[in-house]
């Protein structure tokens, strides 16, 4: 039996442009448990106040805005990106969108997407 891959990919580019603003596409691991789909996104420099997680038109939109870096002086060497993060996933209908939870710790955003009761594996009792 095929497992439905719940959050399917919308955009895979390194950076995306959304109404004249550029976003960096964070790296994300997607995992599944019998109860949940778990997304873990790398958002260095984002704290709780910088997160905007929305569900609209069946899409899960993750936006992370970076806190100011508070570094004095001028950059003499730069590899890091300073733009905010954004990534969009299409939600499978089996996700219970009312019960989505998220937390961010050490720059890792963890989003837990609970599977609806009707799609969870269950034992059928024999009569």
């Amino acid at each position: 039996m095929n497992e439905q891959f719940a959050p399917s990919e919308r955009r895979q580019e390194m950076a995306t442009r959304q109404s004249n603003q550029f976003y960096f596409t964070p790296l994300v691991d997607v995992q599944s448990t019998p109860e949940n789909i778990v997304l873990r996104a790398e958002m260095a420099g984002v704290d709780k106040t910088g997160l905007e997680i929305t569900v609209e038109d069946g899409n899960l939109v993750l936006v992370g805005r970076r806190s100011p870096l508070n570094v004095s002086g001028d950059p003499i060497y730069a590899e890091r990106s300073a733009v905010d993060y954004r990534r969009v996933y299409e939600l499978d209908p089996s996700i219970d969108t009312d019960k989505i939870t998220a937390r961010i710790e050490d720059g890792i955003l963890t989003v837990t997407l609970p599977k609806a009761e009707r799609v969870k594996p269950r034992k059928i009792a024999l009569e």
Binding site: S72, A78, R80, D106, I108
Partner: peptide
């Protein structure tokens, strides 16, 4: 990725290390 900043008195090195203990 790593950045280096310089002012009069200090160098500041900034490294993105999400998810490390």
């Amino acid at each position: 990725p790593l950045d280096v900043y310089e002012d009069k008195d200090n160098f500041t090195v900034v490294v993105d290390l999400p998810g490390l203990k």
